[in-house]
């Protein structure tokens, strides 16, 4: 099987590089939730492009459609209209089993609520996606331990989620999301349930994964320190991208962002 390991060697640059291949592309992406009489237009036609190796922060008030956007590009839900291309593959064209393959190996998910399997130990949680990918259990364990080492939890591999702090749980979740060397990490408010300091540790870990492993990361956050480290920022409001800022613009605007983003 051809593993797309090339991603891990691709160096990330500070600026979005036009030569770099587009890894996520959305075309007029719309998502409407119909509940009885009421139709919620969660996404009102988003056109966007994300390049390989980019670190993108996503900002936007609650209910603006950030999670919905992630569901669309993560292949977790199908759009009402428009298209999502992951590395030029139209997600809509994939059947259920291929979608499972995509979710298993190409995309990693990090949730605000960690979503670890409660009855599994740290290492078992990390190796779940490998099991789904058909990796040999011994190899999976070895790889899992390396990932735990990467997130700094090597010593706690035998702990169950309830025996760990929120930060440790989120780090386990990050190790799990990296299990099959994905190209993209989708982080939906990964630090939403964590205190500031722990949150920053998580952010540092994400940035490191981006820089050292070349994983493309999209991260919903309100933390301006992370924003400063991002390549680009998407502002989402009312189901649309209000604005996209390049990294050089961010440096200038940082001060303003903090104020604007407080809810």
């Amino acid at each position: 099987m051809e593993e797309s390991t090339t991603t891990s060697t691709a160096p990330a640059t500070g600026r979005p590089d036009e030569e770099k291949p587009v890894i996520i592309r959305t075309r007029d992406l719309k998502k409407h939730y119909i509940m009885g009489e009421v139709t919620t237009k969660a996404l009102r036609g988003i056109d966007s492009e994300v390049h390989r190796g980019e670190f993108i922060s996503i900002l936007g008030p609650s209910g603006s459609g950030k999670s919905t956007f992630f569901n669309m590009i993560g292949g977790l839900d199908s759009p009402t209209a428009g298209r999502v291309f992951i590395d030029e593959v139209d997600v809509a064209q994939l059947n259920a089993v291929e979608l499972a393959f995509l979710r298993c190996r190409k995309i990693g998910y990090i949730f605000q609520t960690y979503n670890l399997v409660q009855y599994m130990t740290c290492i078992e949680n990390v190796t779940v996606p490998m099991a789904f990918a058909g990796v040999d259990p011994d190899e999976a364990r070895e790889r899992g331990m390396r990932l735990l080492d990467l997130v700094g939890l090597k010593e706690r591999w035998f702990h169950k989620p309830i025996e760990m702090s929120g930060g440790q749980q989120q780090r386990t979740a990050i190790a799990r999301s990296m299990a099959n060397n994905p190209m993209i990490l989708l982080c939906d408010e990964p630090t939403g349930n964590l205190d500031l300091k722990t949150g920053q540790e998580i952010h540092e870990l994400l940035v490191r994964l981006n820089k050292e492993h070349g994983v493309t990361i999209l991260c919903v956050t309100h933390d301006h320190r992370l924003i400063k480290l991002s390549d680009r920022i998407f502002w989402i409001r009312d189901g649309g991208i209000e604005r996209i800022a390049e990294q050089h613009e961010i440096q200038v605007e940082t001060g303003a962002i903090g104020g604007e983003e407080h809810e």
Partner: peptide, 25 residues
């Protein structure tokens, strides 16, 4: 150049299913 080569997801061996179920139960 296409990086993602989407294939069918593997089917889990019965033994793996079994182990997972046992720990869940």
């Amino acid at each position: 150049m296409k990086q993602i080569d989407v294939k069918n997801q593997k089917r889990l061996s019965m033994k793996r299913c079994f182990d997972l179920v046992i720990s869940g139960v």
